[in-house]
Design a protein around this nucleic acid. Structure first.
Lengths: 198, 198
DNA sequence: TCCATTTTATGACTTTAATCATAAAACAGC
DNA sequence: GCTGTTTTATGATTAAAGTCATAAAATGGA
């Protein structure tokens, strides 16, 4: 969301991450601003018994991990490359300097944080209701609006695995599979050779 | 978090709300920036069968409802006065003008949004684990850090009702009551004539 | 001070997602 | 093309929070 040229002007460097490589870890202090050039990144937590919760998935041109950067707090989650990804890293001080010298960027950051807060609010309310069908459908509809789902003749292709949907909604895979089938039976989405369309 | 004098300079007006009075409603478009002078405000959703989910509780000097204001989106939740409250209202355009002319305020807003996003991330991960004891304890510990809980000889007094804890964590009252008792038995908190201390 | 409402509390029962087991289909790397 | 891994799938069982019923204690107005 910040022009790559501007980031580079302030000293941002490109770094590549292999599939499943860790970009930063929960508990560490932030040192950089991160913006994706290509690929896909997830932020997630692992609880005591190894179960994953995905906070969010980010794609090209998106940034991630800013909140702790602004607050001088430890990262509340890990950032992991889902695919091979190229990311621009700008050291914290340079980033703050960039913001200071380019006030219009502040508004961009505000809008971005506002957007993410909005998503979390909607999902939090949805997740508290406990009904799997609600949770899954809300996630899918949010994904259509904000992730890069593509539309074809069958509708929007939801390119998440059942496992990812589970990790994003706090449900188990089996429950997601059954829920998706139930939603299909109700005509709320389509399953065409295992792929989900809405 | 923005100096009241500055808000008034840009035309903010004080408005009073009675206990349980609605400040704005889910589905409406934002028109103002809101900042609390005194009292207590909650933002919450009601699902189909009337069950409440509290997104957050705000106290004096705090602002609320900004994300949709920046995004031109409908409010995802209601704002309701928990007690009689006095609130400064600044019309949207004046607020944006204030921001534009006072760049240092932008950083304040960013920090505030970052803080709220941080809370939502932590709670989202916690709520997905499904374990009531985890959820309740995390909420309480967050409250100690960010709500105005007061410390006395017994520890921090958690001045939430069991119902409020339930509405904030997505648990039923009975479950909260039983969970709190279980946490007391484990020595993780104290119950002194029905009040919870940590 | 009295009364209505809210909050806390407890027990019995039910529902529902998690868990466990198992397997076929699809995909990815060599 | 073969093989190991991931993803989707289904059935049986279990555990745990929700639900329902009921009530005592506390609180707040009139």
């Amino acid at each position: 969301m910040i022009a790559p040229e501007l980031l580079e002007k302030y000293g941002a460097l490109k770094k590549s991450f292999d599939k499943n490589e860790i970009i930063f870890e929960e508990g560490n202090l932030p040192t950089h601003y991160y913006q994706i050039l290509s690929g896909e990144v997830k932020m997630s937590n692992y609880n005591d018994d190894g179960r994953e919760f995905i906070q969010g998935i980010f794609y090209k041109e998106q940034s991630f991990g800013e909140p702790p950067l602004f607050l001088n707090q430890k990262y509340p989650a890990n950032a992991i490359a889902v695919d091979y990804s190229e990311i621009l890293l700008l050291p914290k001080n340079n980033f703050l300097k960039l913001l200071e010298e380019n006030p219009v960027i502040s508004l961009k950051i505000i809008e971005n944080l506002a957007q993410r807060l909005y998503y979390k609010s909607v999902m939090a309310a949805e997740m508290s209701t406990q009904e799997p069908e609600h949770r899954v459908l809300k996630l899918i509809d949010h994904g259509i609006a904000y992730f890069n789902f593509k539309k074809d003749s069958n509708g929007y292709l939801i390119n998440f695995t059942r496992q990812q949907i589970g990790d994003l909604t706090g449900l188990r895979v089996e429950t997601v599979i059954r829920t998706i089938k139930a939603l299909e039976k109700k005509g709320l989405l389509k399953i065409i050779n295992r792929k989900v369309y809405r």
